[in-house]
Design a protein around this nucleic acid. Sequence first.
DNA 1: ATACTATGTCTCCATATGGTGACAAATATA
DNA 2: TATATTTGTCACCATATGGAGACATAGTAT
Lengths: 206, 206
Amino acid sequence: MKKDTSTQRNKELSKQKLIEAVGNIIFREGFKGIGINAIAKEANLDKVLIYRYFGGLNGLLKAFAKQKDFYINISNRLHDEIEKVQKSELKSLIVEILITQLRELRKDRELQELMLWEMMEKNELTIAIAKEREEKGYELSSKLKTKMDLTNGETDAIMALLVSGIYYLVLRSKTVDMFNGVELNSEKGWQKIENAIKQIINSYFE
Amino acid sequence: MKKDTSTQRNKELSKQKLIEAVGNIIFREGFKGIGINAIAKEANLDKVLIYRYFGGLNGLLKAFAKQKDFYINISNRLHDEIEKVQKSELKSLIVEILITQLRELRKDRELQELMLWEMMEKNELTIAIAKEREEKGYELSSKLKTKMDLTNGETDAIMALLVSGIYYLVLRSKTVDMFNGVELNSEKGWQKIENAIKQIINSYFE
DNA sequence: ATACTATGTCTCCATATGGTGACAAATATA
DNA sequence: TATATTTGTCACCATATGGAGACATAGTAT
């Protein structure tokens, strides 16, 4: 079998087309638009290939998730910075981490759709992705906790609450323009959210 | 036309059966399970009645939402308490409001499903319900703000963040057991969340 | 050349969906 | 009693879904 990419028939290329079709549909319509027929049409290929190459829709979605690296959501840079941070700068590092999370999620529409999907459906794939993300996130959170030797009361829960708040606001902003008087469709509103994060962290960690 | 309820053919009863069928399906399968055929089967009635009595699925859902009073989510009791609260007790009232929100939402599975639906789909009905809830919520929030004359920096955004955090954690707990090291499937975890809310409020408002 | 396998297209199937028209029976009106 | 209207059932349609078998052809190996 030759590896020439100029051939008309090319398994790897077709697989790639199918994976990209998944991404396109998710971007346009979200996960509820995903289906065997829709993907095949989007990729201009026959749906039987999804079964042959990926063993079905589930396998294709798995391949898609793997390629998009949805399993990781926190950059390595932040991990490194935690190691070498001064105790005095810890507060601002926490703020930076949270605000980075906010901004990154706002930019990544596919990730937003994935997170919505995770909230709607519980299956092999969503469980696996969520578990991975949970571990990665908690790893970071734990590093932070040990860094600031004063093991504050409910640090885990407080961080959980703030991260959750960020997630909800970003996801909700897709369908609503205002939340509790804060504009979610303008940078002005998001600036207020960022300020709120700063104020909470600053007041909580003394 | 007689109003005897013992008759075999009874429009009002049938309408009620259809509305209840909607509630049953949402409770069991969430809003993604909702459809003309599924509702008719659940109610043991013909689907044509949905068109005749409600003008279609949308009208039926509207009737359902109205009957369930989803438009209101904050009890009048809290409104009253805000009026007559001492300034010294303001912090604990805010905490009480937030924790009440948390507990009420945790108990109400239909409302959870509705909120998930609102995040997924943007249509006439979800927009109307969300708008109503937003207004009610902000009304309460505004009352609080004027009560504590020190108009703190980003109070709106801070409350938005906390309420959002509560929403996300409750909704996410349907599909995941742990978030940032906090157990969402045990009362122990929720106690931590409640404590975190207390700590944030107490530290933020001096 | 021949045969073989990999890749891809096509047709068909069973099922489910939303939606509609024809009809039967119960109830109300005359 | 006779007639009209309301309430409900049934059959049907067009369309979309996931899934599988039959087949054509491109690429490889003999």
